[in-house]
Amino acid sequence: MNIFRLTGDLSHLAAIIILLLKIWKTRSCAGISGKSQVLFALVFTTRYLDLLTSFISLYNTTMKIIYIGCAYATVYLIYMKFKATYDGNHDTFRVEFLVVPVGGLAFLVNHDFSPLEILWTFSIYLESVAILPQLFMISKTGEAETITTHYLFFLGLYRALYLINWIWRFYFEGFFDMIAIVAGVVQTILYCDFFYLYVTKGESGSNKINPA
């Protein structure tokens, strides 16, 4: 465990909690892509099946359970409790265009052709593109609320910190996982345009981000 991974994990946790609290406090999920949240729930479910097969550390187990729990809680709030506020008309990204190719790729490019390993690979590939429905929704409506942009910022920061973590681990532990690294680079790149807007618009005092 190095400082980059720890802050990466905490940044990821912050993003998840920010979104959950935003929906809970405002009693509304307007502007949030339910599809992205379902994809993240799927990502955590398929990645953390190893909770049942191996124990790594108390930290590891606790965080996995929190991530999975929060992901399903978010999906529940969007599709059940605050369903009336869900902006389904603008959440029109075709998720099958992500899930099907990603599933195929996980079958073709993996470390080991075993069910758990393929599901883990699937989750890594899917995570890298799971935010696309949310970014698509923002580009469609033309704006995002401040809290939503904070959510996206921490979510992007998390993977960027993981990239530094992987460089660190390569130099100091000789550790590298090509699948995680390539998917992590793709994931971080998807947030770059958003990061730029977040910083520039944030300084201008505007509370909305307009990608157009």
């Binding site: 790594i56 590891n60 991530y67 470390h111 080991d112 075993s114 550790f175 995680a180």
Partner: peptide, 10 residues
């Protein structure tokens, strides 16, 4: 490299 890595990351 065709080997399963240790999944100690989240």
């Amino acid at each position: 490299c065709h080997r399963t890595t240790v999944k100690d990351e989240l």
